[in-house]
Simulated assay, not measured.
Amino acid sequence: MRWFYDLRISIKLALTFFLILALTCILGAFSLLQIQKVNRSTTDMADNWLPSVQIALEMEVAISRVRGNQLLRLSSAGADDAAYKKQVDAQLALFEEKLAAFGPLAPLPEEQAQYRRLKQAFDEYKRVQAAVAQAFEGGRREQGLDLMRGDGARHYREVFDAADKLVVLNKEGSREAGPRRTPSTAPRWR
């Protein structure tokens, strides 16, 4: 270490400056690499997982509104049939729109299988809802009620459960897309 003491002060300062500069460059490169990882995770969540969750939740709301308006239509004894039918048709159209929008956001095999299940259940639900609407329009409210209680309720639960499963899958996917946590980096408030 004697050689370092024998150097002139200007050389010592220059060496120290370059050492600090090199360490700063290494730290900067490491930071950029870490920010790229965070950016990839954030982009994946923003472009795929969060829109998927939002659309699946909107489908749940739409199908619930269809069911609710059908029940209100049934209990109204014909007073507001046109308004309830309009609401049911609008919510069915909204559900179909959201269903079509969800398709490209389902790249994983499990999501695709659940998406196909949802589409199939919704097609069956639409078929029953058309029969319920015909019964209402034909003045056969009891037949419409029986359809709603039987096949309508079963298919409604299938649609709702399939949409709910998509919500769960996408929430799990968004958690996995985030940075991997170790016990030392996990939040302490849990």
Results as ranks from 00 to 15, higher is better:
residue 153 A to F: 07
residue 146 D to T: 07
residue 75 S to V: 09
residue 126 K to V: 11
residue 112 Q to H: 10
residue 92 L to D: 00
residue 138 G to W: 11
residue 89 D to F: 01
residue 151 D to F: 10
residue 78 G to T: 02
residue 112 Q to D: 04
residue 158 E to A: 06
residue 148 M to F: 08
residue 69 N to A: 13
residue 70 Q to S: 04
residue 101 A to S: 01
residue 153 A to R: 09
residue 96 E to S: 15
residue 87 Q to W: 01
residue 141 R to N: 15
residue 110 E to P: 00
residue 63 I to C: 02
residue 156 Y to G: 01
residue 64 S to W: 03
residue 76 S to R: 01
residue 125 Y to C: 07
residue 89 D to N: 05
residue 162 A to R: 09
residue 92 L to N: 06
residue 114 Q to F: 09
residue 96 E to L: 03
residue 133 A to V: 11
residue 103 G to A: 10
residue 99 L to Y: 04
residue 65 R to D: 04
residue 84 Y to A: 10
residue 87 Q to V: 04
residue 174 S to H: 02
residue 162 A to W: 02
residue 114 Q to P: 07
residue 162 A to I: 04
residue 180 R to T: 06
residue 124 E to F: 08
residue 172 E to F: 12
residue 118 L to C: 10
residue 87 Q to P: 02
residue 103 G to S: 09
residue 65 R to C: 00
residue 131 A to H: 00
residue 76 S to M: 15
residue 168 V to I: 08
residue 143 Q to R: 03
residue 134 Q to P: 02
residue 84 Y to M: 10
residue 75 S to D: 05
residue 144 G to Q: 03
residue 80 D to V: 04
residue 144 G to C: 06
residue 75 S to C: 10
residue 138 G to T: 13
residue 135 A to K: 08
residue 127 R to G: 13
residue 93 A to C: 09
residue 153 A to Y: 00
residue 93 A to N: 11
residue 113 A to R: 05
residue 147 L to G: 00
residue 127 R to T: 13
residue 178 G to M: 06
residue 65 R to K: 09
residue 91 Q to L: 02
residue 85 K to I: 06
residue 92 L to E: 05
residue 166 L to K: 07
residue 128 V to R: 04
residue 134 Q to W: 03
residue 175 R to S: 13
residue 101 A to T: 08
residue 169 L to C: 07
residue 68 G to I: 07
residue 179 P to T: 14
residue 111 E to I: 10
residue 118 L to A: 08
residue 109 P to W: 03
residue 169 L to Y: 07
residue 88 V to R: 00
residue 176 E to S: 02
residue 77 A to M: 12
residue 77 A to E: 06
residue 125 Y to L: 01
residue 157 R to D: 15
residue 181 R to A: 14
residue 130 A to N: 13
residue 157 R to F: 05
residue 159 V to Y: 07
residue 108 L to K: 14
residue 113 A to P: 03
residue 117 R to G: 06
residue 153 A to I: 00
residue 83 A to I: 14
residue 165 K to W: 15
residue 102 F to K: 05
residue 107 P to K: 14
residue 88 V to I: 13
residue 130 A to K: 08
residue 147 L to H: 00
residue 125 Y to V: 00
residue 123 D to C: 05
residue 134 Q to E: 12
residue 164 D to F: 12
